[in-house]
Design a protein around this nucleic acid. Structure first.
Length: 829
RNA sequence: GCGAGGGUGGCGGAAUUGGUAGACGCACUGGACUUAGGAUCCAGUGGGCAUUAGCCCAUGCGGGUUCGAGUCCCGCCCUUCGCACCA
């Protein structure tokens, strides 16, 4: 007797029909384009609910935009290279390839179960030779442009993953993947010169008004631009000036010491000269060890060691003692600083500890500051004092003037510095795109010619993964040994592979043409199609990529633009960074055992209930807690909608209705429908307010139910309009249910290809409105009155009301505030 | 420390430009229908006093502006995230 939505049957039915019609692989290039992209997954195992949130958000957008008349590109693929595949291979003696493709298979089946609107003809996997051929192509292009280089550097090394990491992959001193504390190692590594684009990467954030502020701020901070001056301080008795970078040239008269980073070459040099090598070496070793382990936890107490040498302040000729100090970062600036304890808190602490004098050169505008009694560094702007010719001017002005003076006298020059470092892309691992470089004894570093791409990975059965201190690829002699493309002599291949983030820095371009047909074999993408589809109109993914993937992709795009290969400067026009789905208070993960499987949810409640719930759970940009009760509630809602439609069909079939001029109830329902269309449309258009969109769909459902519960017979014309339009606006959220309902109410074409309904603005402005009456700001009554009534009439009604009279009598009305069609506030005394 | 968010019922969360605080849902309570209901339908649900109106108190804390403040201003507290000895 009870009616339930048989989601299993319905899902099977429509998946088959959609599939046969290939409805997501049809393109109409006469329509305006819209490219919806969700960050592709890393195939590490089955998908969980956190994934589903991303893909559901994207699917709603794709379906909505399709109904709005856009030509939609909505592809999916696999970020298939990476360390977990290799680790699984080592642990379970499987080939990384087999492991990866098994996972892809699993995930793809999960995707298909969900019935997402992807065009699977454009599927890509970054581990396929046809794909990584072009990842290597990018390497060669960068190499040719001088933007890929090999350099010996102190790099981050994860002892657990047994590979180096990019700066972006070190989170709070730990490996982004396994949380192990990273070590510093001096190694010769390949870098991409992303720093060449630092200024553009910073400036062009302006071209992205619709990106979340949070993400833009994080990128800004990461790029870390600062303006300042490089200044040379001569050292007494030795021809080796100390060069420092400072953003505060206005404090140069307050310098009382110089400090070098432990790694600074001059540190050892001076130690040797002054016969304190042993002590200094000990200090250096201790400091460096400390920074590795302890910089993760708390602030390290400042320590230093006097190097028994002096430098000279080029502006004052004052003698300045030189120290080595543990708080100086070698990698930033010049690895040395001018110490101004009066105006830098770190220098202040150091000076106190080492008994170095403090000299005030800037004082607050309205008070005095004394070098003897100063208690902490004064870092604000103020008035310049004790600064020779620059005294008695504001410090901001002094900053400019002193900078100019230093340049004029040839003591230094103004510079812009960035915190951004070059992108370290070599990985000492097997499962990645091999770096297409050959090392020839005679010719040195030789790039693999384009026509020899791809440099294919050897089969994993030939690889020995277990040799300590050796890259897996090094163990395959037949692969390593090759001929030099230049001289034909014996040569060896580069045995490192590229960071997987290289693979994902350009994949969005590859989707724009169907795989086999339109993408050329000598170029990573088809320009014509890229011109049409790019940039991505809506990109969706987790905030965890705010820096990594998004910065790298922007860099690649800028490089292509510079080379003239593409016409746009930014790859992703809109970005939506969604929050995580938590379960029992933390992010779902296999190791924590708190994974909710979408398969089980779909099995039990169906795709539509799952989608609706994951969207309803909260604002999509915030984290949200999965609740089992919640999904049950949503499943009840789905059934409720289904029953309502059945009731409607029954009314229709049994002629249990009447035709009439709209009465009040009819009109109210009709208005509610139009209000709902408006609300849902605006909620989708305006920053992913899907949770409230669904709430308003529920409100409409409640109103329909109330209407059908009335004593009087329903107005069939109103019912027809309401049920038809309700189905349309429900369909991006619950595609199976609405497709089925659409058919039930007698429609032939798929609901997905119907037009999104337009609401009637005039109707929404009701003729009668509810007026709130406040006395002294407190609600004391409400009146149903006609819209746009003038003030006199309103006051006439309100002040003659018995209830209101009680509040007003014996009191003096001071004023009456009118808010049109909304509220009046009577102020009495 | 610096930067960016956020603090609203038992819970998740709603609230154009300042204008009915708590939409929608979960949970809970009562009723109807039932052999039964964990299904469905109806009603209720921030706190307190009255329970018929009605009144008072409530958006982290303390002030302020205003006829009117969750929303604006000032000062605190707590919290999440990112960066972190960056000169």
């Amino acid at each position: 007797m009870d009616i339930y939505f048989d989601f299993k049957k319905v899902e099977e039915k429509w998946k088959k029909i959609w599939n046969n019609l290939n409805i997501y692989g049809n393109y109409d290039y006469n329509k305006p384009k819209y490219y919806v992209l969700e960050m592709f997954p890393y195939p590490s195992g089955p998908l969980h609910m956190g994934h589903m949130r991303t893909y559901t958000l994207g699917d709603v957008v794709a379906r909505y935009k399709r109904m709005k008349g856009y030509n939609i590109l909505h592809p999916m693929g696999w970020d298939a290279f990476g360390l977990p595949a290799e680790n699984a291979a080592i642990q379970h003696n499987l080939s990384p390839k087999v492991w990866t493709y098994n996972n892809i298979n699993t995930m793809k089946n999960q995707f298909l179960k969900q019935g997402y609107s992807y065009d699977w003809d454009r599927e890509i996997a970054t581990c396929e030779p046809e794909y990584y051929k072009f990842t290597q192509w990018f390497f060669l292009e960068l190499f040719k442009s001088g933007l890929a280089y090999k350099d010996k550097a102190l790099v981050n090394y994860c002892p657990n993953c047994k590979t180096v990491l990019a700066n972006e992959q070190v989170i709070g001193g730990r490996c982004w993947r396994c949380d192990t504390i990273v070590e510093k190692k001096e190694l010769s590594q390949w870098f991409f010169k992303i720093t060449d684009f630092a200024q553009e990467l910073l400036d062009d954030l302006e071209l992205l008004p619709d990106w979340p502020e949070k993400v833009k701020t994080m990128q800004k901070n990461w790029i870390g631009r600062s303006e300042g001056v490089d200044i040379k301080f001569p050292v007494l008795d030795i021809d080796y000036p100390i060069e420092v970078f400072t953003t505060r040239p206005d404090t140069i008269y307050g310098v009382t010491f110089m400090a070098l980073a432990p790694e600074h070459p001059l540190t050892i040099e001076l130690a040797k000269r002054n016969e304190i090598y042993e002590e200094v070496k000990k200090f250096i070793d201790e400091s460096l060890k400390l920074t590795e382990i302890e910089r993760v936890s708390v602030e390290i107490p400042k320590k230093g060691f006097f190097l028994k040498s002096y430098a000279v302040n080029p502006l004052t000729n004052e003698k300045l003692p030189i120290y080595v100090a543990n708080y100086i970062v070698y990698q930033y600036g010049k690895g040395a600083i001018m110490g101004v304890p009066a105006h830098d808190q770190r220098d202040f602490e150091f000076a106190k500890k080492m008994n170095i004098p403090i000299k005030v050169v800037i004082k607050p505008f309205n008070s005095d500051l004394d070098s003897e009694t100063i208690e902490k560094a004064f870092e604000d702007e103020g008035l310049e004092v004790n600064s020779g010719q620059f005294s008695n001017i504001p410090s901001t002005e002094a900053k400019k003037k002193i900078s100019e003076y230093i340049e004029e006298k040839g003591l230094g020059k103004r510079v812009v510095r960035y915190r951004l470092r070059d992108w370290l892309i070599s990985r000492q691992r097997y499962w990645g795109a091999p770096i297409p470089i050959i090392n020839c004894e005679k010719c040195g570093i030789v790039p693999v010619p384009y026509e020899d791409l791809p440099v294919k990975l050897p089969d994993s059965s030939e690889v020995n993964f277990g040799i300590e201190g050796k890259n897996p690829l090094e163990t395959v002699d037949s692969w390593v040994n090759t001929k030099c493309p230049k001289c034909g002599g014996p040569a060896k291949r580069e045995t490192e592979t590229m960071d997987t983030f290289v693979c994902s820095s350009w994949y969005y371009l590859r989707y724009t043409a169907p795989n086999s047909l339109k993408n050329p074999s000598d170029f990573p993408f088809n320009k014509e199609y890229v011109d049409y589809w790019m940039p991505v109109d809506q990109y969706i993914g987790g905030v965890e990529h705010a820096i990594l993937h998004l910065l790298y992709s922007r860099f690649f795009t800028k490089f292509l633009y510079k080379k003239g290969y593409i016409k746009f400067k930014e790859p992703f026009k809109n970005l939506f960074a969604q929050g995580m789905i938590l379960y029992n208070g933390s992010a779902m993960s296999k190791s924590k055992g708190n994974v909710v499987s979408p398969d089980e949810i779909v099995e039990k409640y169906g795709v539509d209930a799952e989608r609706l719930f994951i969207l309803f759970i909260g604002p999509p940009e915030s984290d949200a807690e999965w609740t089992d009760r919640g999904i049950e509630g949503m499943s009840r809602y789905v059934n409720r909608v289904y029953r309502l439609f059945n009731k409607y069909l029954e009314i229709s079939k049994n002629n249990n209705y009447i035709r009439r001029e709209l009465n009040e109830n009819d009109l109210n329902l009709k208005i509610k429908l139009h209000e709902t269309i408006k609300k849902v449309t605006e909620n989708i258009e305006n920053n992913f307010r899907f949770n409230t969109a669904i709430a308003s769909l529920m409100e409409l459902t409640n109103s329909i139910q109330d209407y059908l519960n009335l004593e009087e017979k329903p107005n069939i014309e109103v019912l027809n309009e309401v049920f038809e339009n309700f189905t349309l606006i429900l369909s991006p959220f619950a595609p199976f249910l609405s497709e089925e309902l659409w058919e039930m109410i007698g429609k032939k074409e798929s609901v997905q290809f119907s037009n999104w309904p337009i609401y009637d603005e005039k109707l929404i402005k009701r003729d009668k409105i509810e007026l709130i009456v406040e006395i002294n700001g407190k609600v004391r009554g409400r009146f149903i009155i006609e819209r746009d009534l003038d003030k006199e009439k309103i006051e006439d009604i309100v002040l003659n009301d018995e209830k209101i009279k009680k509040y007003v009598e014996n009191k003096q009305i001071e004023k009456i505030v009118h808010i049109k069609n909304k509220l009046v506030n009577i102020v009495v005394k």
